[in-house]
């Protein structure tokens, strides 16, 4: 474990806490894409299959449980909670995310470390995570104004993978045979997708103005 990876995991945890706070405090999920939340739940379920087979560390196990439980709780909240589900922007959240699931799964069948179910699902979860934010970014562009907590949620979500890139560089330099090409290339693509959001987020922070994404 290095400082970059710890910072990345904590930033990821923070993004989930900010999202839970927004939903709990405002009893509303307006501006949040249910499709992105469903994709994240799928990412964690596909990636943490080894939760019960490979014990890495207490930290690793606890974080996996927290990520799976929180992503399922958010999906449950947005679909079933009587008060919250009414504020879901159903007509704005129209990204055809099934194409993302199909495309990334086919890619995982072709590009994986080993043609075993666990490795294919791991690669699938890595590719899917890279594109999972797209429905959310599209929804933000459509809904025009972005409330602070939602903006912070997306910002932390993008920042966490940027820390992971620093972690992979650090591990590549310090561990003799560390290569994790699938995660690293996919992580760079994932962080790149946030680039324009980061730009508009920085502008709105600099001008102290409301975050607006061009339609």
């Amino acid at each position: 474990m290095n400082i970059f990876r710890l910072a990345g995991d904590m930033t990821h945890l923070l993004s989930i806490i900010v999202l839970l706070l927004k939903i709990y405090a405002t009893k509303s999920c307006s501006g949040i894409s249910l499709k992105t939340q469903e994709l994240y739940a799928l990412v964690f379920l596909a990636r943490y299959l080894d939760l019960f087979t490979d014990f890495i560390s207490v930290y690793n196990t606890i974080m996996k449980v927290v990520f799976i439980a929180s992503s399922l709780a958010i999906v449950w909240c947005m679909r079933l909670h009587p008060l919250v589900k009414r504020s879901y922007d159903k007509e704005l959240d129209t990204f055809r995310h099934y194409f993302l699931i199909g495309g990334t799964f086919v890619l995982a069948l072709v590009l994986n470390e080993k043609f075993t179910l666990q490795e294919i699902l791991w690669a699938f979860s890595i590719y899917l995570e890279a594109v999972a934010i797209l429905p959310q970014l599209v929804l933000l562009q459509r809904s025009g104004n972005v409330d602070n907590l939602t903006g912070q949620y997306v910002f932390f979500l993008g920042a966490y993978r940027a820390f992971y890139i620093l972690n992979w560089i650090y591990r590549y330099l310090t561990e003799p045979r560390f290569t994790r090409w699938i995660a690293c290339v996919s992580g760079i693509v994932q962080t790149g997708i946030y680039a324009d959001f980061f730009y508009y987020y920085f502008i709105s922070w600099k001008n102290n103005s409301k975050l607006k994404l061009p339609a």
Partner: peptide, 10 residues
């Protein structure tokens, strides 16, 4: 280490 397929990262 990370090469024997064990995914030690989240």
């Amino acid at each position: 280490n990370a090469n024997n397929g064990i995914k030690d990262e989240l």
